[in-house]
Design a protein around this nucleic acid. Sequence first.
RNA 1: GGUACCAUAGCUCAGUAGGUAGAGCAAUGGACUGAAAAUCCAUGUGUCCCUGGUUCGAUCCCAGGUGGUACCA
Length: 304
Amino acid sequence: MQKFLIVVVGPTGIGKTKTSIEIAKHYNTEIISADSRQIFKELKIGTATPTEDELKEARHHNIGSQSIHDYYSAWEFEQDALKLTEELFKNHDQLVLTGGSMMYIDAICKGIDELPTIDQQLRDDLKKQHDTEGIESIRRLLKQLDPVFYEQVDLMNHKRVIHAVEICLMTGKPYSSLRTNTIKKRPFHIIKVGLELAREEVYNRINLRVDQMIEMGLLEEARQFYPYKELNSLNTVGYKEIFAHFDGEYDLDKAIELIKRNTRRYAKKQLTWFKKDTETKWFKPTEFINIISHIDGLILNCNS
RNA sequence: GGUACCAUAGCUCAGUAGGUAGAGCAAUGGACUGAAAAUCCAUGUGUCCCUGGUUCGAUCCCAGGUGGUACCA
């Protein structure tokens, strides 16, 4: 029997949770979340984690499975999620993968290259060098260590430049020589479904949802984690703006406005990324019947 | 009802000694291989309220209208 991973993508707030639960129920299967923030058990309100009721409707994986204090990245996600599919495909022919984290989706569908995890000391050292001596000194290092990648990289993007240097120093090889540019073969078919609405409608839903988060107690939730605001897991829309508000940078209204704006920008960025993938078939979140018939059509096609 | 001031980008406003205009914010387009809700790049979108007049030419000057604000009744 052929196996199918049904991937549900779309901008934040469009209703991926609801739709993926419906799909999971229809195929009597389970859901793997590809969300780089819902994966942290502490972050609930600000990440719009599925509710208790929703979690009961269909079994979810990778939600709340990590702590904000853990190191976690797309690489860990690829490993974890692949293991999960292996396990779950024993009892299911279809699985649902859903989430808004673009790179996490790609990590499963296409795979990312095997590279060492960066030593924390090295990371700290390079960051310090960047902060004190400037990006130019890191660029010079990269030019020396990996002239090929130096030509390709966005030199304005310090994270990319630093990371490339990190890899070179960790492996003793040029980063570019480790980039295989290949798509990993997976033991299952991938069906991609995108959810979309008119831009204005997406934005309205986001604005509304942010107000709801505030009502639900986002401030109190954020206050709990304020001491850890430097953690990468908390460099997250909805929290960082409130931390800045706690720091006295601006009032609460301004913070809420910024959360809305930054969430809108995030949604726009997701659309840019997801729209590039021509394999994705797009639907409105309400077109459940069409979504199922599209998926069924592809499954039938593969099985015959 | 009268007087004064205002009307320019989605918003707040600047400006043109008359030659069809520009800032901030918002917005839009894009990049992306272990921080990805991260990080980075690019872009001005316009009946200059309406109708006449003066002028080679009006968003700008003049008249009237409309709408807004303030003050006086």
